[in-house]
Write a protein that binds this DNA or RNA. Structure first.
Lengths: 113, 113
DNA sequence: GTATTCTACAACCATATGGTGGTAGATACG
DNA sequence: CGTATCTACCACCATATGGTTGTAGAATAC
């Protein structure tokens, strides 16, 4: 159930274009919050909030260097999102397999009108 | 930009546990809205709203059969979500590759103190 | 026919979200 | 030192979200 909330946060964090871009921008090299702020036409406070959402989802991490706060994209968590989708698909597949199994069972018996 | 909004909707739709479960429940066989309503401890109206969000994201489709509205999970769109994550990861990889390239360039020169 | 079921839709409410501006504390710069 | 920069935090606002109840219309069941 805690895991569920984490999944919620992960997908929610990915549901905003600015946040997705922040992840992209910070995957190759760390960027300070104010540096990120210059990339978008919104206030620095707004960017800070987006970063906080991403931190909560584990998609980026923050750590201080002097007066600035460096943001780094966490590729691991991206893979986790991937894995979660795999699980959904796997769930689907297992259900489909069961469904086909039922079909086969039925096919084994003479069809009734 | 329209594509971006669609991506927003897709991830947002996945950011709620009830909605994810609805997708799971409707992937193997169609279920009516009221049938889904019995699965969760919330009002039928709330379930209807969740279904609408999923329809907007393309994760399920709805079609009438008599008085009931059948909901079917769309595995294709799940795969699209998968693909979008792949793109994010690819973006990350290409950036990482560039970064490593820079490292190699630097390694080619004598280190300065 | 009447009654029941399934759905849609409207109104409403509490909270969350995404944005703003302002203030204040650290840190770096000249 | 003083000043500029970076960040955190607070209050505020508009809108979205997730939930409720209630009403009404269609299709089915009896």
């Amino acid at each position: 159930m805690e895991r569920t909330r984490q999944t919620d946060r992960l997908f929610f964090a990915l549901s905003d274009a600015t946040r997705r871009d922040i992840v992209t921008q910070t995957l190759d090299r760390e960027r300070s919050v104010s540096e990120l702020g210059r990339l978008y036409p919104i206030s620095l406070t707004a960017v800070q909030k987006h970063v906080e959402v991403l931190v909560g989802a584990g998609l980026v991490s923050k750590h201080r260097r002097g007066r600035e706060q460096l943001v780094r994209g966490e590729a691991e968590q991206l893979r986790r999102a991937h894995h979660l989708l795999d699980e959904l698909e796997a769930l689907w597949r297992s259900r489909l397999v069961r469904f086909e199994h039922v079909l086969i069972e039925h096919a084994g018996r003479p069809k009734e009108k």
